[in-house]
Simulated scan of single mutants.
Amino acid sequence: MVADIDGGAVSADALQGIVWQVWTAYLGSGPPGEPMPPAAYMAPFDVTGAAAIAGAWNGHVILRCRLDGMSAIAAAMLDLPTGSVRLDDVVDAAGELLNIIAGNVKSLLPQPSVVALPQVVLGEADVLWPGALAIRELRTAFVDWAVLLSVMEVDGASLRFP
Protein backbone atom coordinates (compact mmCIF):
# COMPACT_ATOMS: atom_id res chain seq x y z
CA MET A 1 0.00 0.00 0.00
CA VAL A 2 1.37 3.39 -0.97
CA ALA A 3 0.47 6.37 1.18
CA ASP A 4 -1.46 9.12 -0.63
CA ILE A 5 1.15 11.87 -0.40
CA ASP A 6 2.16 14.26 -3.20
CA GLY A 7 5.39 12.54 -4.16
CA GLY A 8 6.12 14.64 -7.23
CA ALA A 9 8.47 12.73 -9.52
CA VAL A 10 8.32 9.64 -7.30
CA SER A 11 4.86 8.32 -8.14
CA ALA A 12 3.23 5.48 -6.26
CA ASP A 13 3.35 3.31 -9.38
CA ALA A 14 7.03 4.09 -9.96
CA LEU A 15 7.98 3.18 -6.38
CA GLN A 16 5.94 -0.04 -6.51
CA GLY A 17 7.60 -0.87 -9.83
CA ILE A 18 11.08 -0.32 -8.40
CA VAL A 19 10.34 -2.58 -5.44
CA TRP A 20 8.84 -5.28 -7.64
CA GLN A 21 11.89 -5.24 -9.95
CA VAL A 22 14.39 -5.25 -7.08
CA TRP A 23 12.56 -7.99 -5.15
CA THR A 24 12.33 -10.11 -8.31
CA ALA A 25 15.95 -9.60 -9.41
CA TYR A 26 17.68 -9.79 -6.03
CA LEU A 27 15.34 -11.75 -3.75
CA GLY A 28 13.94 -14.27 -6.20
CA SER A 29 10.28 -13.24 -6.03
CA GLY A 30 8.16 -10.13 -6.26
CA PRO A 31 6.53 -8.66 -3.15
CA PRO A 32 3.18 -10.17 -2.15
CA GLY A 33 0.17 -8.70 -3.91
CA GLU A 34 -1.49 -7.76 -0.63
CA PRO A 35 0.34 -5.78 2.06
CA MET A 36 0.61 -7.02 5.61
CA PRO A 37 -2.10 -5.97 8.12
CA PRO A 38 -1.70 -2.33 9.21
CA ALA A 39 -0.57 -3.43 12.68
CA ALA A 40 2.54 -5.00 11.11
CA TYR A 41 3.74 -1.50 10.18
CA MET A 42 3.04 -0.07 13.63
CA ALA A 43 5.38 -2.44 15.45
CA PRO A 44 8.80 -1.02 16.20
CA PHE A 45 11.31 -1.89 13.50
CA ASP A 46 14.79 -2.90 14.58
CA VAL A 47 16.58 -2.44 11.24
CA THR A 48 16.60 1.04 9.70
CA GLY A 49 18.62 1.96 6.64
CA ALA A 50 18.83 5.35 4.98
CA ALA A 51 20.54 6.67 1.87
CA ALA A 52 20.70 10.40 1.24
CA ILE A 53 20.23 11.88 -2.22
CA ALA A 54 21.70 15.31 -2.84
CA GLY A 55 21.93 17.70 -5.77
CA ALA A 56 19.06 19.12 -7.78
CA TRP A 57 16.81 17.26 -5.31
CA ASN A 58 17.64 16.61 -1.66
CA GLY A 59 16.21 13.92 0.54
CA HIS A 60 16.43 10.37 1.81
CA VAL A 61 15.27 6.90 0.92
CA ILE A 62 14.55 4.91 4.07
CA LEU A 63 14.04 1.16 4.50
CA ARG A 64 12.66 -0.28 7.75
CA CYS A 65 12.08 -3.90 8.71
CA ARG A 66 12.22 -6.28 11.65
CA LEU A 67 15.51 -8.13 12.16
CA ASP A 68 13.98 -11.53 11.34
CA GLY A 69 12.61 -10.14 8.08
CA MET A 70 15.92 -8.55 7.13
CA SER A 71 17.66 -11.82 7.98
CA ALA A 72 15.36 -13.57 5.49
CA ILE A 73 16.14 -10.87 2.92
CA ALA A 74 19.88 -11.29 3.57
CA ALA A 75 19.58 -15.07 3.16
CA ALA A 76 17.80 -14.60 -0.18
CA MET A 77 20.26 -11.96 -1.44
CA LEU A 78 23.37 -13.83 -0.37
CA ASP A 79 22.04 -17.32 -1.16
CA LEU A 80 22.61 -18.48 2.42
CA PRO A 81 20.61 -20.83 4.62
CA THR A 82 18.43 -18.69 6.90
CA GLY A 83 20.04 -20.04 10.08
CA SER A 84 23.55 -19.06 8.97
CA VAL A 85 22.90 -15.33 8.46
CA ARG A 86 25.08 -13.16 10.73
CA LEU A 87 24.43 -9.56 11.79
CA ASP A 88 27.15 -8.40 9.37
CA ASP A 89 25.21 -10.12 6.57
CA VAL A 90 22.03 -8.32 7.64
CA VAL A 91 23.77 -4.93 7.62
CA ASP A 92 25.43 -5.62 4.26
CA ALA A 93 22.20 -6.84 2.65
CA ALA A 94 20.15 -3.94 4.03
CA GLY A 95 22.73 -1.43 2.79
CA GLU A 96 22.98 -3.02 -0.65
CA LEU A 97 19.21 -3.34 -1.05
CA LEU A 98 18.78 0.28 -0.02
CA ASN A 99 21.56 1.41 -2.37
CA ILE A 100 19.83 -0.31 -5.31
CA ILE A 101 16.42 1.14 -4.43
CA ALA A 102 17.83 4.64 -3.82
CA GLY A 103 19.69 4.53 -7.14
CA ASN A 104 16.45 3.70 -8.93
CA VAL A 105 14.59 6.47 -7.06
CA LYS A 106 17.39 8.91 -8.00
CA SER A 107 16.79 8.13 -11.67
CA LEU A 108 13.28 9.60 -11.32
CA LEU A 109 14.48 12.87 -9.77
CA PRO A 110 15.82 16.11 -11.22
CA GLN A 111 19.48 15.82 -12.18
CA PRO A 112 22.25 16.15 -11.30
CA SER A 113 21.80 14.23 -8.06
CA VAL A 114 24.02 11.72 -6.27
CA VAL A 115 23.30 8.94 -3.79
CA ALA A 116 25.39 8.79 -0.61
CA LEU A 117 26.49 5.52 0.90
CA PRO A 118 23.66 3.98 2.90
CA GLN A 119 23.74 3.90 6.68
CA VAL A 120 22.13 1.00 8.57
CA VAL A 121 21.13 1.12 12.23
CA LEU A 122 20.34 -2.05 14.18
CA GLY A 123 18.04 -1.79 17.18
CA GLU A 124 14.80 -0.01 17.91
CA ALA A 125 16.01 3.52 17.22
CA ASP A 126 14.08 6.74 16.89
CA VAL A 127 15.96 8.01 13.85
CA LEU A 128 15.10 11.56 12.77
CA TRP A 129 15.65 13.41 9.50
CA PRO A 130 15.41 17.12 10.40
CA GLY A 131 13.80 19.29 7.74
CA ALA A 132 12.58 16.23 5.82
CA LEU A 133 8.99 15.50 4.86
CA ALA A 134 7.74 12.09 3.75
CA ILE A 135 6.54 12.44 0.16
CA ARG A 136 5.98 8.76 -0.56
CA GLU A 137 5.58 5.71 1.67
CA LEU A 138 5.25 2.13 0.49
CA ARG A 139 4.06 -0.61 2.82
CA THR A 140 5.25 -3.84 1.29
CA ALA A 141 6.57 -7.18 2.48
CA PHE A 142 9.07 -9.92 1.86
CA VAL A 143 7.45 -13.31 2.40
CA ASP A 144 5.80 -12.83 5.84
CA TRP A 145 7.72 -9.77 7.04
CA ALA A 146 6.57 -6.17 6.75
CA VAL A 147 8.93 -3.77 4.97
CA LEU A 148 8.35 -0.01 5.08
CA LEU A 149 9.97 2.10 2.39
CA SER A 150 9.85 5.91 2.61
CA VAL A 151 11.04 8.70 0.35
CA MET A 152 11.58 11.94 2.23
CA GLU A 153 12.31 15.33 0.69
CA VAL A 154 14.42 17.87 2.53
CA ASP A 155 13.01 21.38 2.52
CA GLY A 156 15.51 23.57 0.67
CA ALA A 157 15.12 26.32 3.27
CA SER A 158 16.43 23.98 5.97
CA LEU A 159 19.68 23.56 4.01
CA ARG A 160 20.60 27.24 4.15
CA PHE A 161 23.02 28.44 6.77
CA PRO A 162 22.81 31.94 8.29
Score class of each variant (00 low, 15 high):
residue 116 A to F: 06
residue 27 L to E: 12
residue 114 V to F: 11
residue 71 S to P: 05
residue 143 V to I: 14
residue 107 S to F: 02
residue 63 L to H: 07
residue 128 L to D: 14
residue 30 G to H: 09
residue 70 M to E: 13
residue 109 L to A: 00
residue 148 L to R: 12
residue 56 A to C: 09
residue 59 G to W: 00
residue 31 P to C: 03
residue 133 L to G: 12
residue 34 E to T: 12
residue 38 P to Y: 10
residue 141 A to G: 11
residue 83 G to M: 11
residue 128 L to C: 14
residue 91 V to R: 06
residue 25 A to C: 10
residue 56 A to I: 06
residue 111 Q to G: 05
residue 124 E to A: 12
residue 93 A to R: 04
residue 48 T to G: 03
residue 36 M to P: 05
residue 65 C to D: 07
residue 152 M to C: 06
residue 145 W to C: 11
residue 145 W to N: 14
residue 161 F to S: 12
residue 90 V to Q: 02
residue 139 R to Q: 15
residue 87 L to K: 07
residue 122 L to I: 14
residue 110 P to R: 08
residue 86 R to P: 02
residue 74 A to Q: 07
residue 102 A to N: 01
residue 125 A to D: 15
residue 134 A to N: 12
residue 66 R to M: 11
residue 66 R to H: 09
residue 27 L to K: 08
residue 101 I to Q: 01
residue 132 A to C: 15
residue 136 R to V: 12
residue 92 D to R: 04
residue 77 M to H: 06
residue 33 G to L: 12
residue 144 D to N: 15
residue 111 Q to S: 12
residue 144 D to R: 14
residue 102 A to W: 01
residue 142 F to S: 12
residue 134 A to I: 10
residue 82 T to Y: 15
residue 51 A to K: 03
residue 74 A to I: 07
residue 51 A to R: 01
residue 80 L to F: 12
residue 154 V to K: 00
residue 41 Y to I: 03
residue 100 I to E: 01
residue 155 D to V: 00
residue 39 A to E: 15
residue 137 E to P: 11
residue 126 D to W: 09
residue 30 G to I: 09
residue 34 E to I: 07
residue 121 V to D: 08
residue 70 M to P: 05
residue 84 S to G: 11
residue 140 T to K: 13
residue 64 R to I: 00
residue 153 E to H: 03
residue 95 G to T: 06
residue 137 E to G: 12
residue 159 L to C: 04
residue 54 A to F: 05
residue 37 P to C: 08
residue 110 P to V: 08
residue 107 S to I: 00
residue 66 R to V: 13
residue 52 A to V: 04
residue 67 L to C: 08
residue 143 V to F: 13
residue 123 G to N: 10
residue 57 W to E: 01
residue 97 L to R: 02
residue 73 I to N: 06
residue 65 C to I: 03
residue 72 A to F: 09
residue 74 A to H: 06
residue 39 A to Y: 10
residue 81 P to I: 09
residue 39 A to F: 10
residue 67 L to N: 06
residue 64 R to H: 04
residue 118 P to R: 03
residue 115 V to F: 05
residue 77 M to Y: 07
residue 154 V to Q: 00
residue 157 A to E: 08
residue 53 I to Y: 02
residue 148 L to Q: 10
residue 139 R to L: 13
residue 156 G to K: 13
residue 138 L to F: 10
residue 105 V to R: 02
residue 95 G to M: 06
residue 91 V to Y: 04
residue 79 D to V: 15
residue 104 N to Q: 09
residue 125 A to M: 15
residue 59 G to E: 00
residue 108 L to D: 07
residue 44 P to S: 10
residue 87 L to Q: 13
residue 107 S to H: 02
residue 59 G to F: 00
residue 133 L to S: 15
residue 102 A to T: 02
residue 48 T to W: 01
residue 81 P to N: 11
residue 25 A to I: 11
residue 43 A to R: 14
residue 50 A to Y: 04
residue 64 R to C: 02
residue 29 S to L: 14
residue 141 A to N: 10
residue 137 E to N: 14
residue 100 I to F: 00
residue 40 A to L: 05
residue 114 V to Y: 08
residue 35 P to T: 02
residue 60 H to R: 02
residue 107 S to K: 03
residue 149 L to Q: 03
residue 52 A to P: 02
residue 38 P to Q: 13
residue 117 L to M: 11
residue 30 G to L: 09
residue 136 R to S: 14
residue 59 G to Q: 00
residue 53 I to N: 02
residue 136 R to Q: 15
residue 67 L to W: 07
residue 134 A to Q: 12
residue 85 V to R: 08
residue 153 E to I: 00
residue 153 E to A: 06
residue 46 D to R: 00
residue 122 L to W: 05
